[in-house]
Design a protein around this nucleic acid. Structure first.
Lengths: 262, 262
DNA sequence: ACAAAAGTGTTAGGCTTACACCCATGT
DNA sequence: ACATGGGTGTAAGCCTAACACTTTTGT
């Protein structure tokens, strides 16, 4: 081991040589609205760019806890499942000079804690929420918050564009094995709605008839009597899903399906 | 945001209120030898328990980099692929008093940096290496290092037992989609050897004939002319695998297969 | 009436599973 | 000679992909 330095309790600059990187968590919060996958972004008043909701993991917290609180704070929701997907953090990726103003606005003193904020590791989480359940105040005193179409995300702070791309890729890879899409849909949803979510993440179209067979074969969802009127065509049936079994599957990473989709 | 504290450059105790958790990376290094899955553990001289190789991520490093260096240091290997699998870290999980001596022995000054070492987040990586390629010095001046059977791991420092379990579970889930097992095998290997690896991770036996068909269908491995003598029975053929395609698949998380195995 | 999109059903073919049988090797 | 375990082959059947046809709805 090469880190043999000791710490002088009264000399911060000495600490630079032994201190470890800071840990930041950030959330890619996904929703689905009008056939489009949306992501929730925030923008501090007085700054120039949008970014993902993020926060330093403080001493008294765990990373999962910080990430959970962050989602709760932004969406006003209680029940959701956050998923780790990747730890980011290259040396020198955190350009201090550039982000000095932002950090200051977020309550982190860039002068005093210069060395602590320069290099960080970023733990990425993704979350699926129901668009209609989320009540955001589009503008508060300190920040703006807004849904963005996944394919219309502006240039963001830090490496957040990369983070979003990676989250999308992770989901694409997991969506065939975990019943992720359910969390994006309202309590009652139609088969076409669900299929579109899969299509958006996968990046190609699916045969609606075969898709339906696959989904139903999991036993996770129940066909309802009701239909949903929506345009100049036959109304699709509504379905609901078994939340208990779904949550259990998420917790246990149970193997409910293993689909490659064409 | 609630962290509005500023930092007094000359007062460490003040920092406790703004400082974030430390980031530690650790590796579950897997190997395969005599039909058994092995894990590499280390033990500092003067301490009582074994543990996974781990290190604080220092300011000048990225997490992946630290994890890579750690594996290289322990195994003397250059070429391997490390995979993130989970970020651990509950509040209060890092019992300072208990580990004071260990930290001191590892070159981290527990007196001076008390507050920095109390709470940490632990990023878990797993790595697959070839047993025969690893040259470990079983005992150096500062530590012992040893292979342990996966099902015979002693009580370890910190939450390392939990980390190993979780890594095993992650692999079990990914082994059907990624050609992981190859990295555990020597350049030339037999089909039964490879099958046993799958069986160990999955926890149940597989039909040897169907297994062979599946593996061959990926086009990743080539049958050689040679055979391997090994007991009172017909000698199995040797196979080699296409490293280029394998590495590319790992990098891109390419979908080479999607198996559920019975 | 017609276009759009959903519901339902069918069929061919590929892949998986579950075997049977034969072959090499060491004791 | 025999037990052990590997090599090769095959048939049944399930699952999937591809596609046809009917039904509902708004304009």
């Amino acid at each position: 081991m090469q880190h043999q330095k000791t710490v002088d309790n009264n000399n911060l600059s000495e600490l630079n040589n032994i201190l470890t990187v800071n840990l930041v968590v950030g959330n890619v919060i996904f929703a689905f609205h009008e056939e489009v996958i949306k992501i929730l972004l925030v923008k501090r008043k007085g700054t120039s760019k949008w970014m993902l909701p993020w926060a330093f993991v403080l001493l008294e917290e765990g990373a999962d806890e910080t990430a959970y609180k962050l989602v709760k704070e932004k969406t006003n929701l209680d029940e959701f499942h956050i998923s780790q997907f990747h730890l980011f953090g290259k040396y020198d990726r955190f350009d201090y000079e550039k982000h000095c103003k932002l950090l200051s606005l977020m309550g982190y003193d860039p002068k005093g804690s210069h060395s602590f904020l320069r290099y960080t590791a970023f733990m990425g989480y993704y979350v699926f929420v129901r668009y209609d359940d989320v009540a955001i105040n589009k503008e508060t005193e300190i920040e703006e918050i807004e849904w963005f179409d996944i394919h219309n995300v502006p240039d963001l702070y830090f490496e957040h564009n990369e983070v979003i791309e990676k989250s999308f890729l992770s989901i694409k890879q997991r969506i065939g094995y975990l019943p992720l899409a359910f969390a994006l849909l309202p309590e009652k949803f139609t088969m076409p709605e669900m299929r579109i979510i899969y299509e958006k993440f996968l990046g190609y179209e699916l045969d609606r008839r075969n898709f339906q067979r696959k989904i139903l074969s999991t036993g996770l969802i129940t066909k309802l009597e009701e239909k949903k009127k929506k345009g100049a065509h036959k109304s699709p049936y509504l379905y609901s899903f078994n939340t208990e079994r779904y949550m259990k599957a998420l917790e246990n990473d149970e193997q409910l399906m293993a689909w490659t989709f064409q």
